[in-house]
């Protein structure tokens, strides 16, 4: 890969300042960024590690809200969020593999917004608030399509606030090579409604399946979904599955997530 200057600030303010440099990029766990740099698809001049910033680490449980520091690894979420928000912990435990989970972070995953990543489904499926150094962004406004988010240049996610649902689960169907989601569905039931977010399936990245949300709002059961199908327009078609297959999986994995959450 191309060489770069490596900096590792210890505060968010310092990180933001370092990112103001020409061709600077943030680095969190690096589980996606480093492979893309090896392939020379990405060549920052300055790489700003966010892994030394204490205020971006850890999990805080407050009433109906779980706030996760953006630089918290998947492995920590998988264990430390298990009591307060098992649906989120369960999703984190299915990302990549153990070694990837020991490095990869929540903030890195959301900022990258890979259309097959797991975490965007949790953020959108809970209506989480993405907290950055500059502002707070509702998940519904954050994901703007494949690898695109509402983040401004040099803006970094510092934490994510998840409203804790009454019931939730993530149903993931593995893409067998990459272990990303061929299709993954996060289902969350709240007092005032149900959210269903789908990753891995759409050309436009993570999306909410509103028909399923409506059906589940009145009856949170797999039966409520019977007969419901997700249109195959805009679905990803590749060597792992056609658009029609992914659309079919959306329904199957939604049902399974509902069963797992019930």
């Amino acid at each position: 890969m191309h060489n770069f200057e490596f900096v590792k600030p210890s505060t968010v303010a310092d990180a933001v300042q370092a990112l103001a440099a020409e061709e600077a990029q943030p680095l969190s766990g690096g589980q996606t960024l480093i492979p893309s740099m090896k392939a020379r698809l990405n060549a920052p001049e300055v790489l700003v590690s966010l892994m030394g910033i204490a205020e971006m680490q850890g999990i805080r449980h407050e009433g109906d809200m779980l706030e996760v520091g953006a630089a918290t690894t998947h492995a920590r979420v998988a264990t430390e969020a298990a009591a307060a928000f098992p649906g989120l912990a369960g999703l984190a435990a299915q990302i990549g593999d153990p070694a990837v989970r020991n490095r990869g972070t929540l903030g890195g995953s959301l900022a990258n917004n890979d259309p097959s990543a797991c975490y965007p489904a949790a953020a959108l499926g809970t209506g989480a608030v993405i907290v950055t150094n500059a502002r707070e962004i509702a998940a519904d406004d954050f994901f703007l399509g494949m690898f695109t988010t509402a983040l401004d240049e040099d803006e970094i996610i510092t934490s994510v606030r998840f409203p804790i649902p009454q019931k939730s689960a993530y149903g993931k169907f593995l893409q067998p090579a990459s272990r990303f989601a061929l299709t993954g569905v996060f289902v969350a039931k709240y007092a005032d409604g149900v959210r269903v977010a789908v990753t891995g399936a759409s050309e436009n990245g993570v999306f909410r399946w509103s028909e399923a949300e409506a059906a589940l709002a009145s009856d949170f059961s797999a039966e409520a979904l019977s007969g419901l199908s997700c249109p195959a327009d805009d679905m990803i078609a590749d060597l792992h599955g056609s658009a029609a297959y992914r659309a079919h999986l959306v329904a199957v994995m939604t049902r399974r997530a509902v069963v797992a959450a019930s």
Binding site: F6, G30, I34, A99, N102, R103, S178
Partner: peptide
């Protein structure tokens, strides 16, 4: 970052050594 031939323990946790910078 798939094959895991490079896994080492960093502060006790399994890490893929090919997907972490030494400086970090």
């Amino acid at each position: 970052s798939q094959c895991g031939a490079c896994v080492v323990l960093v502060d006790g946790a399994a890490v893929k050594a090919c997907t972490a910078f030494a400086a970090d």
